[in-house]
């Protein structure tokens, strides 16, 4: 009897000790539209990784996807996100400014300005490239119609716009008037401005509108991968584009409240590991890691890439100059 009691006590203490160490974590990753597949893969990888050092824990990761700006707004308005992984730094800056749940210097907390993977803007054209489109200059030829979302409602499309503007600047020898002229001509060739990247893809792929879709490289690859996509479309890489840098950050105030600061930070850090970088590359995002990048060299052609910080002075100056009311984009449509 005493032995049985002893055994029970031992069992109870083991259970107790176990429960004191093991924790239940639920993370909410608020992301933008085309990262769905990426984070599905990455979440599985991260849970395995975390369990290696914390075998007793249970980890559940929820994902939320939508337009980058809309997602940013939901976090400002109180969505309990532990981490945000959005399309552009400007949206996380706004969370820091208006929501105050992320510190202003969030971009210094992780390597590479908190952007673990990158992409760029390429052209998706109809199979065989019937309009002979090779570079940005071909987009403003007669009879070419271009599909791109409205940069005012789509964070992703702001990269498209800046890539085009960058080409205008380069081809005009750095003259802003020439760049404005190019961009106005380009948008005369845009028959539909969808509100988000998904809408534009539907317009181009399903509704058969336009000759060229300006797309993120990862989205263009996805369109080819989807059933029959490779028989219908080709990717054209222009001479010059922009390095699209989708950033990540821990929503510190929320994570503190949920007791998830440690795991949320680790969740983002692990994106920079070899495993995380592999998953990014497999989902057609360009990895930051040099070794992984070398391995996927064939998939990602090298091209001349502008950056938001060096060529446009960062989002803090690009956003008001190009996209706020009365900015360069509005001037295309509203007679001055």
């Amino acid at each position: 009897m005493s032995i049985r009691r002893y055994a029970l006590a031992a069992l109870a203490s083991a259970v107790f000790a176990g429960s004191a160490v093991a924790k239940d974590f639920t993370l909410l990753n608020v992301s933008y539209d085309p990262t769905r597949e990426l984070y599905q893969d990455y979440n599985a990888e991260f849970i395995n990784f975390w369990k290696k050092s914390h075998p007793g824990d249970t980890v559940k990761i929820n994902q939320s996807h939508g337009g980058s700006g809309k997602q940013g707004r939901s976090v400002i308005d109180g969505s309990p996100a532990d981490v945000v992984t959005l399309a552009l730094a400007g949206d996380i800056d706004e969370i820091a400014k208006l929501g105050k749940t992320i510190p202003e210097n969030w971009q210094t907390k992780l390597p590479d300005a908190s952007t673990p993977y990158t992409s760029t803007i390429v052209f998706l054209v109809r199979k065989g490239n019937p309009k002979g489109i090779k570079d940005w200059g071909d987009l403003i030829k007669d009879g070419v119609s271009v599909i791109t979302p409205n940069p005012k409602t789509s964070g992703g499309a702001r990269w498209n716009f800046l890539a085009a503007y960058g080409y205008g600047l380069k081809s005009g020898g750095g003259d802003e008037a020439k760049a404005n002229e190019y961009i106005s001509k380009l948008f005369k060739h845009v028959p539909v401005l969808d509100t988000g990247a998904r809408g534009s893809t539907i317009t181009f792929v399903n509704n058969g509108q336009g000759d060229v879709l300006l797309a993120w490289e990862n989205e263009a690859f996805l369109a080819l991968k989807e059933d029959g996509g490779a028989d219908k479309f080709d990717i054209v890489v222009p001479s010059l584009s922009i390095l699209a840098e989708p950033p990540v950050a821990v929503v510190e105030k929320n994570a503190e409240k949920h007791g998830t600061t440690e795991i949320a930070t680790e969740y983002l850090k692990h994106l920079y590991s070899k495993e995380g970088q592999e998953i990014a590359a497999k989902n057609f995002y360009r990895p930051r890691d040099k070794e992984v990048a070398a391995k996927y060299e064939k998939q990602f052609p090298s091209l001349n890439l502008l950056t938001i910080d060096k060529d446009f002075g960062g989002w803090k100056s690009a956003q008001p100059k190009f996209f706020d009311d009365g900015g360069v984009f509005d001037k295309i449509y509203i007679p001055q």
Binding site: G67, G69, K70, G72, R73, I76, E94, L98, N150, K152, T153, P191, V192, L193, D194, T195, G199, I202, F323, D324, D325, D330, Y333, I334
Partner: peptide, 24 residues
């Protein structure tokens, strides 16, 4: 989806509200 959303031509008022919200 059907509007085309071209400023001054086929842009509806609720879309302009969304545009403003997207600029915070």
């Amino acid at each position: 989806f059907i509007a085309g959303n071209m400023p001054m031509k086929t842009e509806i008022l609720p879309l302009l509200i969304m545009v403003k919200l997207d600029q915070y």
